[in-house]
């Protein structure tokens, strides 16, 4: 009797079992490195898991104490300010120049592929290489390009990456002017998706490129602009590489995620670092939601 039941059951669920068996390894890896990591991060943010003291004090539940502390932490707040500046500057620079490049590319009848290839490669340059290049450009002695350029006019060398007024700006200059590649490609694909007939129809009414851009290109490009702005926001809020590699432990360039990194891996205060991570997570979520709401208000003609 029982044997028949199992047979029936097996027959009924055989396909499902097979599918889950195929997914077994991915689901396990995913559960360990994503789900467990996330849940554990939250649980640990409520404990006192600080390797410097946990042996003496014993593992304790401290509630949301760390979260309150995060908003009083000088390094984190300082980092949040710099991260916000970085995000806004990169959002404007990379999307502005990216769109400009894409619009210029669309005007060309020849050489599109050449310019596309020639403008995209910096997207593949690693953070380590950018670090070395930036260190070289802003080198405090006359070895640096900037100082040796200024020395032509008799201006003495400055320590750009250390001074309060210039440190953050120095980090931002190169990514601001050259970091548009990824955005350019997305804008370019978006512009190519706008049907030519719209432009032909518009060209009967007006010769003004500005008008055509304002009434046709910009509204139809809405979803692509939305995507690019969202990508910029998420990338910008997570910035750590330039701060960590080019100007380590510099209060004038500290970013929020770098402050978290220091708390976790240098101070070994993992609970506090998790709290900082979750605060950043909530900030990014809120920004995403706000951006989604503004998107709904713009009309898309399609």
């Amino acid at each position: 009797m029982k044997g028949i039941d199992i047979k029936k059951w097996y027959h009924k669920y055989r396909n499902d079992l097979k599918c889950y068996l195929l997914l077994l390894v991915p689901i396990c890896l995913f559960s360990v490195f994503f789900v467990y990591g996330f849940v554990r991060g939250f649980v640990f943010s409520l404990l006192n898991y600080d390797l410097r003291f946990v042996m003496l004090e014993g593992l304790q539940f401290v509630g949301f104490e760390h979260y309150a502390e995060v908003f009083r932490d000088k390094d984190f707040l300082n980092g949040l300010l710099h991260t916000t500046i970085w995000t806004v500057v990169m959002l404007i620079g990379n999307n502005g120049f990216g769109l400009l490049m894409a619009v210029c590319l669309m005007k060309l009848s020849r050489g599109r592929k050449f310019f596309l290839a020639g403008l995209y490669w910096p997207a593949l340059v690693s953070a380590a290489i950018t670090t070395q290049i930036t260190l070289y450009v802003f080198n405090p002695t006359e070895t640096g390009i900037l100082n040796s350029f200024l020395s032509v006019f008799g201006i003495p060398p400055k320590d750009w990456l250390v001074n309060e007024d210039t440190a953050l700006i120095s980090l931002m200059v190169i990514p601001f002017f050259t970091g548009f590649s990824q955005k350019m490609i997305i804008f370019y694909a978006g512009l190519n998706g706008i049907p030519k007939t719209y432009y032909e129809a518009a060209s009967l009414d007006t010769d003004s490129g500005v008008q055509i851009f304002g009434y046709i290109t910009w509204p139809l490009l809405g979803p692509v602009v939305f995507l690019n702005v969202l990508l910029s926001l998420i990338e910008g809020m997570k910035v750590i590489a330039p701060m960590q590699l080019i100007t380590p432990h510099n209060d004038f360039t500290m970013s929020a995620i770098y402050a978290m990194y220091i708390d976790a891996f240098e101070n070994t205060n993992f609970s506090f670092a998790f709290a900082e991570g979750f605060v950043m997570f909530v900030i990014i979520m809120v920004l995403t939601v706000i951006q989604n709401l503004t998107q709904k208000e713009t009309v898309v003609y399609e």
């Binding site: 490195f33 994503f34 991060g41 640990f44 997570k238 978290m260 976790a264 993992f270 991570g277």
Partner: peptide, 13 residues
Amino acid sequence: VPGEILLVSNYLL
């Protein structure tokens, strides 16, 4: 799930 939280918890793991 944000990568920076996973950075810390995966390091512990």
